[in-house]
């Protein structure tokens, strides 16, 4: 039973990260109809930028905030320069965002090399025990931050004026623009938020899993799979899909074999794509031709 809880917690931790990355995908997808294949790179850059700031002697909090803001601003730039010009063209959007991810990974190699960077854990105490289960303090940080962030995002989208304009743009950007909502700015906001959320995911997981130039790509793929599982374009579904994928992976590697971890993820992707491409919560009609 102890093993079960141990696996449950590690699954939840990974699942929260996948969920955050998936929400990042959703935020961009809803307002722009672009799937940002460079989403995972936000997490990688966030973590590496924060690690560098810390080595310069800044406090963890300040470094993290700077890292998050920098990645967000970078995302706005990318949207403005490379993604807005192609409009609604799906194929070009895919290839351009892949190009962006190639460039960002290359930049990370030039700036940080291929070695993994470590972040310190957020609290002094490393582990504590609940019964026979050992819980890393960072695991609580990850789960706590994710839940707070997801809740805050939900409140933002449903309770604030800006959040409502954001949802209006997600439903129909053209109509929203006619209602006087600056749709271009909302696009920028979407990219800023997705970059920030991605960066937060990268920063909180970095103390537990080392980050290096290509860590983002793997996170991005898992986040996308979480989106498919939960229903593309649905933020609640994205969080749910992330947690589900994390748990499945953890139990598969705990009870079957650790080599099965990635196989499970891809299997889930294919199963959902072919059997229920709308995901658990999404609408099937949206993806069906």
């Amino acid at each position: 039973m102890d093993t079960f809880f141990q696996i449950l917690i590690s699954g939840l931790v990974v699942g929260c990260i996948y969920g955050l990355v998936a929400i990042g995908f959703t935020t961009v997808y809803n307002v722009t109809n672009v799937v940002n294949f460079a989403q995972g790179e936000s997490s990688m850059l966030g973590a590496l930028l924060t690690a560098t700031m810390i080595t310069f002697g800044f406090s963890l909090l300040l470094s993290a905030v700077c890292g998050i803001l920098l990645v967000g601003v970078l995302n706005i730039l990318v949207e403005r320069v490379a993604i807005r010009p192609v409009g609604k063209n799906i194929t070009k959007g895919i290839l351009i965002t892949i190009g962006v991810s190639v460039v960002l990974q290359g930049l990370a190699v030039v700036l940080w090399g291929t070695n993994a960077q470590a972040l310190p854990t957020f609290s002094q105490q490393q582990n504590f025990n609940i019964g026979n289960v050992v819980v890393a303090s960072q695991a609580l940080w990850v789960i706590g931050t994710s839940v707070t962030l997801m809740g805050g995002l939900y409140l933002f989208l449903t309770r604030t004026y800006l959040g409502r304009t954001f949802r209006a743009c997600a439903m129909n950007p053209d109509t929203a623009a006619l209602m006087g909502i600056p749709a271009g700015m909302i696009r920028g906001l979407g990219f800023f938020m997705s970059g920030g959320i991605g960066a937060i995911a990268g920063i909180i997981i970095a103390p537990m899993a080392l980050m290096q130039y290509d860590s983002g790509a793997a996170l991005g793929i898992k986040g996308f799979i979480a989106c498919i599982i939960g229903g593309f374009g649905n933020p609640v579904g994205a969080a749910l899909g992330g947690v589900l994928l994390g748990l499945l992976e953890a139990f598969a590697s705990g009870y079957i074999s650790s080599g099965m971890k990635n196989a499970i993820a891809f299997l889930m992707l294919l199963v959902f794509l072919f059997i229920r491409p709308g995901g658990i919560l999404g609408e099937f009609d949206k993806v069906k031709r």
Binding site: L95, I96, I98, G99, V100, S101, V102, V103, Q105, G106, L107, V109, V110
Partner: peptide, 8 residues
């Protein structure tokens, strides 16, 4: 790789 990505 950076130049390749920019080309893409």
């Amino acid at each position: 790789t950076i130049i390749f990505g920019l080309l893409l």
